[in-house]
Write a protein that binds this DNA or RNA. Structure first.
Lengths: 252, 252
DNA sequence: CGGAGTCCACTGGTCTGACCAGTTTTTGAA
DNA sequence: TTCAAAAACTGGTCAGACCAGTGGACTCCG
């Protein structure tokens, strides 16, 4: 195995075992190079590997530091191997929404089909609570409403997957994105979407419920996309061969 | 921001967007350095970052290659949080299939929409290989075919979730369920389903592709359900990780 | 004395060109 | 034609130089 990898593993184990605490400074590259008897290039490669893995952070002129672990990781469950995809890649957020659109739709479909009396009661309660307040400013109630529907699907796998996706979103999206856009028109649209979803589920109309749910997620997704555009960061959609040509001269 | 990071992000985005497909070779370090007008050291640092992130794999004397987007496949054993659902409730298998049905459909839909030339080539290759042999006895090829389609969706979230679900299934279902039932009629049906899916994706017909994929999963699901009814011990919980690994070679 | 610069010794970031070590292709002799 | 040596790739490591932020120490002036 390459020396740089051995070093990166060694350092990572040192950090994970607690030999180096979060926020603690790592010896300088030149020091490490001398101490370990290798060139500075190797050290830098090892550090970049840890950097890509999110174990350390490096600041020009200051040094490298052990990254502080995400505090919410323990509460919400586990560190998803997907998480690294998000760092610096807001586009992944829309991949996430793309999947959610589908699953929320399925959940609504199944909920309309399978909801028991108790489920309907819970859903109604959540919906009423939501109706009383501004859904845009109350993400928690919004979440409660959707969760009630998902759970009414009586598919634990679906519940879990959607929950994971939602957690991932919460960690990446700026706190309550909705708050940033308290436009009246949008609020009204969302209220209407919720009502359509609610009525379809309660009435036991799977197809309508599915349609309402997917439409809702898609609406949110597109709203976010617009926001992103206005914010300056450009989101690019599916790419074809053109993008590849820039690099793909080498192999077949 | 450091040049090496810009390059690593650029490359990662290129990969996620589908400009570079899994298993594809990345231009050599020297080529990248020349083409991007930076030193080889910078390229190496960028590649090490992607390596730490699991996006690429590098082999001495051969080159760097885009890693398959499925993280858990060859990584060190990570205990999925979903696993606990199965303990004592093997019935969850059908919940799993219910979700997969939806997501495989979406993946096929997106693949038909977004597949690049390279993707089509990979899918065709996987399909041809599959066609040459008995799909029922060759779970590995079957898996390769489906994976090629999912990856052509260019949605890493979708890839990851589906992979998780698939792993989950492998851990609970007896190895190659299909093998236990080598009925000729079933084999023919599956071949036909694969062909429909393949043709729809290649032809760029999202709706048809989605329909074919969901129909396929549903068919498999119902076949399993029938088997279970007939009294076979379809589901068994593996005792330990070693036992589980034995199953991890089988496919849909 | 106290603040505002300047300077210098750190830190990481990049470049160059060389050489070592695996892998693949080409070549040329048996 | 066959097959082994050689050349031409690939990544891995090394050396030393210089650039670019950071921060502390040490002036120098008010």
């Amino acid at each position: 195995m390459a020396i740089s990898q051995e070093i990166s593993y060694r350092l990572e184990r040192l950090i994970l075992d607690g030999g180096l605490a979060p926020e603690q400074k790592i010896p300088s590259e030149r020091q490490l190079a001398t101490r370990l008897g290798v060139s500075r290039a190797v050290i830098r490669e090892a550090l970049h590997e840890l950097q890509g893995r999110g174990v350390i952070e490096t600041r020009h002129g200051k040094g490298s530091f052990v990254a502080s672990m995400v505090p919410g990781a323990n509460e919400l469950g586990e560190q998803s191997p997907l998480m690294h995809l998000f760092e610096g890649h807001p586009r992944t957020l829309f991949d996430l929404l793309e999947v959610r659109e589908q699953l929320e739709g399925q959940a609504a479909y199944l909920a309309a089909q399978r909801a028991t009396r108790l489920d309907r009661h819970r859903i109604t309660k959540a919906f009423r609570a939501l109706e009383d307040t501004d859904p845009l400013s109350n993400a928690r109630l919004d979440h409660g409403f959707h969760l009630a529907i998902v759970e009414a699907s009586h598919n634990p796998v679906l519940v879990h997957v959607l929950n994971s996706l939602k957690n991932m979103m919460l960690l990446t999206v700026q706190a309550s994105v909705a708050n940033l856009n308290p436009r009246e028109e949008m609020r009204k649209k969302i209220v209407r979407q919720h009502r359509q979803l609610y009525e379809a589920v309660i009435a036991g109309k799977p197809a309508s419920a599915q349609k309402a749910a997917t439409a809702h997620v898609r609406f949110v997704s597109e709203a976010m996309r617009d926001m992103e555009k206005e914010g300056g960061t450009l989101i690019r959609l599916p790419v074809n061969q053109e993008a590849a040509n820039e690099y793909s001269r080498a192999g077949t």
